[in-house]
């Protein structure tokens, strides 16, 4: 089947690729564009490790057709740090020991980033709700919740979400 061209902004840069009509965004990001922050976990939208922002909304890139992203703004965890300066959420994840194996971390960061952009001072319950689509096997979630609340208290949502 003929490949189709698709073009979008990825972490602030114009990127393009050729994709199968049924190809998903995760595949394009990882194999086509070399952005390995979004992970391939279940491939069916139940684990959250492939979470990216599309026009600011958290979406599962494994369930998103790549061609549907034409002209849109895609943001992944790769674009969070500003050179050597970590995003406040990344710093809070470090400070609160919110990563162990790290496989869920890009998805968790992205889900948290979407939350804080909309709601800079979330309650604990709102944080729990925001990451409830993301599975973590190592941390028991508590350090992740603590990190997101700490980043929110530090103004992460308002400064650069």
């Amino acid at each position: 089947m003929a490949k189709l061209p698709v073009q979008f902004r990825l972490n602030g840069s114009d990127r393009a690729g050729f994709v199968d009509p049924a190809g998903n965004l995760l595949d394009l990001l990882r194999r086509g564009l070399g952005d390995f922050a979004p992970k391939y976990g279940c491939g069916q939208g139940t684990c959250g490790v492939c979470t990216v922002l599309i026009d600011g909304e958290p979406q599962l890139s494994c369930l998103t057709l790549a061609i549907s992203c034409e002209g849109r703004q895609i943001e992944t965890a790769s674009g969070m740090a500003d050179g050597p300066n970590l995003h406040p959420l990344q710093q809070a994840f470090m400070d609160n020991f919110a990563a162990q194996c790290g496989f869920c971390t890009p998805g968790m960061l992205t889900a948290a980033r979407a939350l804080l952009a909309k709601n800079p001072n979330p309650t604990r319950d709102e944080v729990v709700e925001a990451i409830s689509g993301n599975i973590c096997r190592c941390t028991g979630y508590e350090p992740i919740i603590a990190a997101i609340l700490a980043a929110a208290a530090g103004g992460a949502g308002m400064r650069r979400a």
Binding site: C42, T46, V128, E129, C136, Y141
Partner: peptide, 17 residues
């Protein structure tokens, strides 16, 4: 067969420890 059916506690099911 997948994470819909393989149950694990989520972030809302954790207990103070």
């Amino acid at each position: 067969r997948d994470f819909n059916e393989y149950l694990m506690p989520g972030p809302g099911d954790i207990a103070p420890y």
